[in-house]
Amino acid sequence: MVSPLLVLDLVERTGPLPLGATVAVPLDGSDDDVALVTAWCTRSGNSLVEVIDGVATVRRGPSPDPYADLDPDQIPGTRLWIYTNFDCNLACDYCCVRSSPQAERRALGADRVRKLAGEAVDAGVSELILTGGEPFLLPDLDDLVAACTAALPTTLLTNAMLLRGRRLEMLRRMDRDRLVLQISLDSPTPELHDRHRGARSWERAVAGIRTAQADGFRVRVAATLEPERFSELEPFKAFLDDLGIARDDQVIRALAHRGVADTGLELTVESLIPEITITADGVYWHPVSADHDDQLVTRELFPLADAIAEVKRRFVAHRAKADAAAQWFPCA
């Protein structure tokens, strides 16, 4: 039997609150009390933020829409990142997932990629993004990509240094209408790019961009920059313009302090909008942390919808907690 006094307390404590403000209401700790608070919040249009140590935090009015400030493609579960493998022909000194020629392959495999692509459609995903490692090291990459492009529009991340011979033939078998190649290039001249990624890597990446373009693929260029270099982007953009890369396909991102990077932005679950990421080892919060257990969501890849739901649940909980904290610590 729950205490009727609890409901009276809820009404009295929330009544004077401004919309959006929260109040702590002590419970007696029973499951019945939590159920009663939940039922009362549902009925009264208020929201239960959390119950910790026998104290319920209740917000006046409905929970704010956690996705209100996000662009449509930022809503968790809209895009699905898939790490096809972790080995790479390069050993970039800032790689967030510690890829290199010595890294274990940890390939996801065509069967699981195919299953993911199929479940992604049903789960409401609108775009697949394949990354590594260097995906073109995989002998069956064209099969993986075909499974993805058959299901959804797909982006394939690559350093474009291996686009010749058998691998170029694999590329040419991919669906140009459904696939975008995202190629890494960090500077308009070789020096900086090669310093991070290895000798002659800039020259070969630029050649790869031209090869892909010549074969009719849409190419997006992604650069990883130290924060201090964001003030000197114009020469780089002009170079990309000359390469024929549309401005919308020029992606500049900040270096993350992850993997083997010594510096960069500190990124945590609390500070990152999730981009659900699948590897052979599990489901991760974001591709930048796909080799770090602090952002591991679950080891279970399937059903994919469950993993997406769990990420969304955690994201909503983080947002609610942050909103509640903001209420508790006004600027005065």
Partner: peptide
């Protein structure tokens, strides 16, 4: 309005 606010007699059966 207050009777509605406490959920009538539906949230706490056996109370009021």
């Amino acid at each position: 309005n207050t009777w509605e606010a406490i959920g009538r007699d539906e949230l706490m059966p056996g109370a009021f």
